[in-house]
């Protein structure tokens, strides 16, 4: 077990080395979070729609993603996007993560849409609005607002899951920790250090989500 002062020393020494990987972790999380949200919204709408086969298609996607390990999905999707479609490393990795989190985000949106009182749809319809107009103008704005806290949590999960991109040659936080530990044979130190990086970012995001939640709650009263 490395001593505390040793870990701190190494933390300070390697701090500059971690800056680029840290940025890449943020970029991966942000890109896959945004794309995953779009995918999630589309599949949530498909799931609650009356389009033929729509709900079935959404179920299939969600079942496949929930039923297989993330690391397997990342390898399959990454090599699919990278080798078959040739999207480049960053976007192949981001899209792999996006397709994964999209399934969970779809379930968040679906739950929020279905939590809106049925009377809202009926009121829209009774005014002569179409089901699509009512969904877009009345249901979705309320559902999206309710989705924000669980979306924040999903984003935090995604940030941690992005560490798996280390296994597909992405030079992000965890991959830097692996490299340094291999170079120095001081594995424990660098894995502890990278854990601190993740923890600090996660705590920061948790705080942001909480603040956002409080602000939204205020708007309700």
């Amino acid at each position: 077990m490395p001593s505390f002062s040793h870990v701190v020393e190494e933390f300070i020494r390697t701090f500059p080395l971690f800056m680029k990987p840290l940025l890449l972790t943020f970029e991966l999380t942000f890109a896959s979070g945004v794309v995953g949200t779009v995918i999630g919204l589309l599949f949530a709408l498909l799931k609650v729609s009356r389009i033929p086969l729509g709900p079935m298609l959404a179920d299939l996607y969600i079942t496949l993603i929930r039923g297989t390990p993330l690391i397997v999905q990342i390898f399959v999707l990454y090599f699919g996007f990278y080798k078959v479609v040739d999207l480049g490393q960053f976007w192949s990795a981001s899209l792999a993560l996006a397709v994964h989190s999209g399934a969970y985000i779809a379930e968040i949106f679906r739950g929020a849409i279905q939590s809106i009182d049925k009377g809202q749809m009926e009121a829209g319809l009774s005014l002569g609005m179409s089901p699509a107009q009512t969904m877009r103008r009345i249901i979705l704005p309320q559902a999206l607002k309710r989705s924000i806290p669980p979306l924040g949590n999903q984003f935090i999960l995604l940030l941690k899951e992005s560490s798996l991109a280390a296994f597909i040659a992405m030079e992000e936080l965890f991959s830097m920790a692996r490299r340094l530990s291999a170079e120095t044979f001081d594995e424990m130190t660098f894995f502890l250090i990278v854990a601190v990086y993740y923890l600090v970012i996660v705590l920061f995001f948790t705080y942001l989500v909480k603040r956002l939640e409080q602000r939204l709650a205020k708007g309700d009263s």
Binding site: D117, A123, G124, S126, L127, G128, M129, Q142
Partner: peptide, 26 residues
């Protein structure tokens, strides 16, 4: 339904819109 208006027991106003926005929506 544009010819047949409906008023519900539980009002079903749109909570994210002001009173005026509720009325002008449709």
């Amino acid at each position: 339904r544009q010819k047949v208006g409906m008023v519900f027991q539980h009002f079903n106003l749109f909570p994210h819109k002001t009173v005026l926005e509720n009325v002008i929506e449709a």
